[in-house]
Simulated assay, not measured.
Amino acid sequence: MFIFLDIDGVLNKESDWSKPFSLNSDCIRRFCEKNREARIILISSWKNGFISSHNEKNTPQIKELEAQLDRYGIRIVGKVCDNRYRDYAVRDYLKEHPSIKEYVVVDDDIKEYSSKDIPHLRLVDSKVGFR
């Protein structure tokens, strides 16, 4: 399963935001335990620090995220290109990768999307992160 993943509000929660680029181990554990076969495509602003899987040029924040996901055998395999709306970015990514048939989008912010009716979108409450 491919997961288009936002980070802030999903793998951390609002109370973690006082420290930029923080991760919440409980949110990560819950996410990973429910998504053991996941292949991650970043839709988060964190994607700007991702070059390629385990690349030494990845930002320290991405390296930490990769390390935590690795404990569960989950890998980041790509990132979307910037677009005004994330649903458009996901659509464009899927056009470029037609072999992806099964996917879900996990995010906490509906304002990042062109409408409120987005197929495959699972909204997360940013106050508690992934459950």
Rank of each mutant, 00 (worst) to 15 (best):
E64W: 01
N24M: 05
W17F: 15
R131A: 11
V77K: 04
L23N: 11
I43C: 07
D108F: 01
S25T: 13
C32D: 13
G49L: 02
I3R: 03
D107Q: 08
K95Y: 12
S99T: 10
I74Q: 04
I74V: 11
V105F: 02
V90I: 10
Y113E: 05
S44V: 02
K57Y: 01
E56F: 10
P98N: 01
S45M: 00
K95L: 15
N55Y: 03
S126R: 10
L11N: 06
V10T: 05
K95M: 12
L94E: 13
V10N: 06
L65H: 06
G129S: 12
I28F: 04
D6F: 00
D6H: 05
E66I: 07
F4W: 07
F31W: 12
L23F: 15
I62F: 08
E14R: 10
D92I: 04
N83V: 00
C81H: 03
K101V: 09
E96C: 13
L11M: 11
I41H: 05
Q68N: 13
R122L: 13
K63P: 08
K116D: 12
L121C: 10
G78R: 03
S53P: 02
I51C: 06
D108N: 06
D8C: 06
N83G: 10
K57F: 02
E56R: 14
F31E: 13
N55R: 04
D108L: 01
G73M: 11
R39D: 08
K127A: 13
R86N: 04
K13D: 06
I100D: 09
R30H: 13
K34T: 05
D107Y: 03
E14M: 05
H120Q: 14
S25V: 11
K116N: 12
D87L: 04
S15N: 02
Y88I: 06
V106M: 07
D92S: 15
N12L: 03
A67R: 15
L123E: 11
F21W: 14
V77Y: 00
R84D: 09
E14N: 13
K34W: 00
D125C: 12
D70N: 11
R39Q: 15
A67H: 09
L5H: 09
G129I: 12
I74R: 05
I40G: 03
I41C: 07
E112C: 14
L11K: 05
K47E: 00
R91N: 15
I62C: 07
R86P: 09
W46A: 13
N48M: 10
G9H: 02
